[in-house]
């Protein structure tokens, strides 16, 4: 496991450097002249770091959800948290609510994510068992999706409609260090909670009846873990929009490396998610289109065949 962790750290570092060196008009930075320092450190570097951190957040969130729900197809979208977070932000923008500080917008997204989690809990009847929670998550996600579509339908003007639609597809383009500074504290807090609850997460290798007899305050621990995952997903949505499939792909990448123990799976999935999103954003930068592609589009092009592969593989087992 340590070997793969180091390897993935190295891959992330190499991809980060390549991402920073990669520009829309060529490689390197010498050709940028006097603006090189600003372009590299204030545009390219924060974009690369944001892509990597978002991938890590979604990778860890996906791994935790798959372990907790005992479902290899679980991913951040399935809890409805990503939808709730996106809906809250779009609603604030739509109603033109003026926030005292712009930096409060991420908190709005997190509030939306947490409200989704609360709705999830109410619909699931306070239960945290796999199937019931997943079905409740599908209901919450569908409802958030319907509300988002309604808000977009009633957009005040076509420009707002286009802007919100593109944001919903996910992107780390035109972001700066402020987004990184918003994401990092949430990640530190969420990872601290997940580390604190690592024994509980690890105990999900046992069937539900055995787990219930292992001395955990199950509901208490489960909701701490789900709150941490909500924070990761919401922070990702606020800083980069809704990026689908990374939370699904990254844990399976870790499993392909032979790791099935939950804590180790979370680590490898986080590193794998970071590397994946760097690659995907690299493709976004490389593909010559008049309007830059959105991360969610490229992620779906890779993720959908992967999902089909997983389903076929599961059918063979």
């Amino acid at each position: 496991m340590r070997r793969y962790s180091l390897l993935l750290c190295l891959v992330c570092a190499v991809l980060l450097i390549l991402h920073v060196l990669m520009g829309s008009s060529g490689w390197g930075y010498q050709y940028l002249g006097d603006a090189a320092s600003v372009i590299v450190f204030d545009i390219r570097l924060p974009r690369a770091v944001l892509a990597m951190l978002n991938g890590m957040a979604l990778g860890v969130a996906g791994a935790v959800l798959q372990v907790m729900f005992r479902n290899p197809l679980a991913e951040p979208g399935i809890t409805g948290v990503a939808g709730g977070s996106a809906l809250a932000i779009v609603l604030v923008l739509y109603t033109g609510l003026s926030l005292p500080v712009n930096g409060l917008l991420p908190l709005v997204g997190m509030l939306g994510g947490l409200l989704s989690l609360l709705a999830l809990w109410l619909i699931a009847g306070g239960h945290t068992s796999g199937l019931r929670l997943i079905l409740a998550g599908v209901a919450v996600a569908s409802f958030c999706g319907a509300l988002l579509a309604l808000v977009l339908n009633l957009a005040p003007n076509p420009f707002a409609y286009l802007e919100w639609s593109l944001w919903l597809l996910g992107s780390v383009a035109n972001r700066g260090w402020e987004q990184v500074y918003l994401l990092v504290p949430s990640m530190i807090l969420a990872f601290s909670v997940l580390t604190w609850q690592r024994n509980f997460i690890n105990a999900h290798i046992f069937d539900p009846h055995t787990l219930a007899s292992l001395g955990f305050r199950q509901n208490w621990s489960a909701w701490w873990v789900l709150a941490a995952v909500t924070l990761l997903i919401s922070a990702s949505v606020v800083t980069a929009g809704v990026i689908s499939f990374i939370g699904l792909l990254a844990p399976h990448l870790a499993r392909l490396l032979g790791e099935h123990r939950p804590p180790q799976l979370m680590l490898l999935s986080g590193l794998g998610g970071g590397a994946l999103l760097l690659v995907i954003d690299g493709i976004v930068k490389l593909v010559p289109t008049t309007v830059e592609l959105q991360l969610g589009v490229v992620a779906a092009f890779i993720g959908a065949p992967w999902l089909v592969y997983l389903l076929m593989r599961q059918a063979r087992l």
């Binding site: 372990v67 290798i205 007899s213 123990r261």
Partner: peptide, 13 residues
């Protein structure tokens, strides 16, 4: 110590 009716491992470990 409790052994449930149909215990099983959820992960390939």
């Amino acid at each position: 110590g409790y052994l449930p009716q149909a215990p099983h491992a959820e992960a390939a470990i």
